[in-house]
């Protein structure tokens, strides 16, 4: 059972599932996780995770609370570095380069691998300045207006805000704020966008808009999304990683990747009993 994840990564070129989003199995991995563990001090929060993140595909991470899916997500752009005592074991590569090599600058990593958070968190600045901020810190100064407009268009927000770019980002609705955060993230044109439960604070209509937007964005960007909502994973993703928490011999809980496969496979024909239990438990 512990080898499940390794088997699954080899079995990727499989039959497409019944989902609307067909995985492009030929897509090459932008990122690759090899036996990645995340530690907080001496506590191993997540154990040995091996999976690819494929280019211009949406990879979903699902599982119960405390299974380590967000922890893994945050290790992908070195956000875990900000937590004192956090470190990783194993290896994460990004375009073949070791993300945690000593000479790698976490700030450069985050400029290439953007992130959208659970709670919409626009800065208390104008809509325009929210988007421009990322561009400015990346040293981009020319054609600011055009770049901001493009990011807001790509974030499916332009039509709603084009007449009030100077008003505060915090005056928008929750769903609009989250799309502003997505526009802010894509303004700097990262390779990968990480989304940590981006819709959990939103109503169904706003959620639907974000999901549509994700499909659009996947034409250009590689997306990894953590979600509590299995239907959402089934609706939007090409690949799904199922995590759960296990208790070891010393009665310590660790998060663990159980199964990784095409989303269609995971939801119709999971290999692991635990995946099946989780999925059917929620649906039934």
């Amino acid at each position: 059972m512990t080898q499940a994840s390794f088997d699954m990564t080899n079995a990727l070129s499989s039959v497409p599932g019944a989902m609307s989003t067909m995985p492009t199995s030929s897509a090459k991995p932008v990122m690759q996780l090899e036996g990645v563990s995340v530690f907080y001090g001496s506590y191993e929060a997540v154990r040995g995770t091996t999976m690819p993140v494929r280019e211009q595909q949406i990879t979903a991470m699902i599982g119960p609370s405390g299974c380590g899916k967000s922890t893994i997500l945050r290790s992908l752009n070195r956000m875990n570095d900000l937590i004192p005592g956090a470190r990783i074991g194993g290896k994460i590569t990004f375009h073949g380069q070791d993300l945690y090599a000593p000479d790698v600058d976490p700030i450069q990593v985050r400029r290439r691998i953007g992130m959208v958070f659970q709670k919409p968190n626009p800065f208390p600045k104008s809509i325009y300045e929210n988007v421009a901020y990322g561009l400015r810190i990346n040293g981009i100064k020319d054609n600011m207006d055009d770049r901001v407009e493009k990011a807001l268009r790509d974030g499916a927000l332009w039509d709603e805000v084009k007449d009030k770019l100077k008003s505060s980002g915090l005056a928008l609705s929750g769903g609009q704020q989250q799309r502003l955060c997505i526009a802010r993230a894509i303004a700097v044109q990262p390779d990968v966008i990480l989304m940590d439960e981006p819709c959990s604070a939103l109503d169904p209509i706003a959620t639907g808009k974000i999901e549509d937007l994700m499909h659009e964005l996947a034409r250009t960007y590689t997306i990894v999304i953590v979600t509590h909502n299995m239907q959402q994973a089934a609706r939007v993703s090409h690949y799904t990683a199922f995590f759960t928490a296990e208790v070891d011999e010393q009665q310590v809980r660790h998060g663990r990747l159980i199964e990784f496969n095409d989303t269609g496979r995971i939801f119709t024909n999971p290999t692991d009993k635990r995946t099946e239990d989780y999925i059917t438990g929620r649906f039934g």
Partner: peptide, 21 residues
């Protein structure tokens, strides 16, 4: 809020840029 600081960090801000933003 920590979420605001995280937003800046995630955009690749340095510490000073995070403080400014």
């Amino acid at each position: 809020p920590d979420s605001d600081k995280q937003a800046a960090w995630a955009l690749g801000a340095t510490r000073w840029e995070m403080i400014k933003g």
